[in-house]
Design a protein around this nucleic acid. Structure first.
Length: 473
DNA sequence: CGATTTTGACCTGCGC
DNA sequence: GCGCAGGTCAAAATCG
């Protein structure tokens, strides 16, 4: 595959454009056959300076990447065929339409329910010519109408695009830069983050806005004096940067538990409180994680999924949701903040608050409920709590001891913190592909240097706070 | 010797 | 278009 060749694009066109770019390896240059048979200059020394181990790593990465691509293609093809089959059934017997609905992942089902329900009620035979003709131009600006007109088409597109989105996301992280360089003008799928965002933007036009398809992040703030935080995964540091406004450097890690795993995380210490370590996870593991963290993963995944879905009705105190929130049953008070700013909606689980802070926030919930911040425009009406709607002083007293205990436990329980961190690293998989049958990932152990800094700086245009709490014992 | 970390260069998006 | 900041790459250095 040309991906192999692409790896030798050590000196891409962009490099060439840099007239004054001093190169460490500017002795000699050779032309190598680049991606898509485009000849690209590749500067190398007369004697290659690349270490053998580096090459091996590259080769493994490429192999893994290709395996992922092939797998993705297989899955997409299979889904397409399945859908096509179900579609034929549906056309033959309308009752089978329900089957199609069942076939779709939960998220898509929900989406479809809202959109196709009306159409199903007034099910009109859709002209067969338009059903699968994705090239048919839309004659209406009203996308909803368009969907209503051909729900099956949208279902199929949704399923396919979902698969593609998943791959986009995976590839996005691993090969974002490379792809954006090499795929420019080549055509085909745009794997760049911009492309992804673009897809997201398109999505919002053509479909309902789908935050889950965005490149979400999960950030965990926890007090940790330990130089390393064990979260179950193996991480390899690939970069470190000084972030603006923070004396502590931000470190960048990628998961090395499996070759080609696209999960990355950032670690930074808080400038205001050096004892607070912020770990931000991004991406989906492409490998199973130790079962130990599955428990946490299911809870955090559910929480994040709920947050991202914008659910205003979900209540983790609802017994029917108890299965989704085992963690919250155990650790009742966690402050979660959702930043909906593009390009990365970020959920921050803050485990650093003291019991009193918790209580104050809970008591003053009316002002704690998501509120518009100055200059912030994206108001996301999320509010989730398992606590009673109000918590009055007497109730506060009733809960006080438990809150203190639990919060203290959270603050001091490194296992919890670690497990939560591990779980978070897998969240995106759950939120983005919980319908793919994707297994939960749970990270386990990692080496992580302390002394890394403050909360990840996001150029938030909006944010909101959400209490994820649970009054149950 | 393989794996990991360090670190300067580079790329890209965004705001002005 | 330019500069800034965040993020990534990759060769070299270091570690075990």
């Amino acid at each position: 595959m040309d991906a192999v060749i692409r790896e030798f694009d050590f000196f891409s066109a962009n490099h060439q454009d840099k007239k004054d770019a001093p190169s460490k390896v500017d002795a000699g240059s050779k032309e190598l056959l680049g991606r898509n048979n485009v000849r690209q200059r590749c500067k190398i020394d007369e004697q290659p300076v690349i270490q053998l181990s580096t090459l091996r790593v590259k080769v493994e990465k490429i192999k893994e990447e290709n395996r992922n691509l092939v797998g993705m293609l297989d899955r997409a093809t299979k889904k397409y065929k399945d859908l096509e089959r179900h579609l034929r059934l549906a056309m033959e017997q309308p009752a089978a339409a329900a089957h199609i609905n069942n076939y779709l992942p939960k998220e898509e089902r929900n989406e479809m329910d809202g959109l196709s329900q009306p159409s199903r009620q007034s099910i009109e035979p859709v002209p067969s010519t338009s059903m699968l003709d994705i090239n048919e131009p839309s004659h209406s600006d009203d996308k909803t109408n368009e969907r209503v007109a051909s729900p099956e088409k949208n279902m199929m597109e949704a399923a396919i695009s979902k698969e593609m989105d998943h791959h986009d996301h995976m590839t996005n992280i691993v090969g974002r830069k490379r792809m954006s360089r090499d795929d420019e003008g080549v055509g085909g799928v745009d794997y760049t983050s911009k492309g992804n965002q673009g897809a997201g933007a398109k999505n919002s036009e053509d479909n309902m806005p789908d935050v889950s398809s965005q490149k979400a992040r999960v950030s965990i703030r926890a007090r940790s004096d330990a130089p390393l935080m064990i979260d179950g995964c193996q991480w390899r540091k690939y970069g470190q940067k000084m972030a603006k406004g923070n004396p502590c450097p931000r470190a960048y890690y990628r998961c090395t538990m499996a070759t080609g795993c696209p999960v990355r995380k950032q670690v930074q210490r808080c400038a205001e409180d050096m004892s607070i370590l912020t770990t931000t996870y991004e991406g989906n593991h492409n490998h199973p994680l130790p079962p130990a963290a599955t428990f946490m993963a299911s809870t955090t995944s559910a929480a994040v999924s709920m947050l991202l879905s914008g659910s205003t009705t979900s209540n983790i105190n609802d017994p029917s949701n108890s299965g989704l929130f085992p963690l919250m049953s155990k650790y009742p008070y966690t402050i979660a903040t959702l930043s909906t700013s593009a390009p990365h909606p970020t959920i921050t689980l803050d485990l650093t608050h003291t019991p009193n802070e918790h209580n104050m926030q809970l008591i003053q919930r009316p002002s704690f409920v998501p509120q518009q911040l100055p200059g912030h425009h994206h108001h996301h009406p999320l509010y989730m709590s398992s606590m009673p709607p109000t918590l009055f002083p007497e109730e506060k007293g009733k809960h006080q001891s438990m809150v203190d205990m639990v919060t203290a436990a959270i603050a001091t329980d490194h296992n919890f913190t670690a497990a939560l961190a591990a779980a978070a690293s897998s969240i995106m998989r759950a939120t983005q592909s919980n319908s793919h049958g994707g297994h939960h990932t749970t990270s386990s152990s990692s080496k992580m240097p302390a002394g890394l800094g403050p909360p990840t700086h996001h150029k938030d245009r909006s944010s909101l706070s959400t209490v994820i709490s649970n009054g149950r014992k």
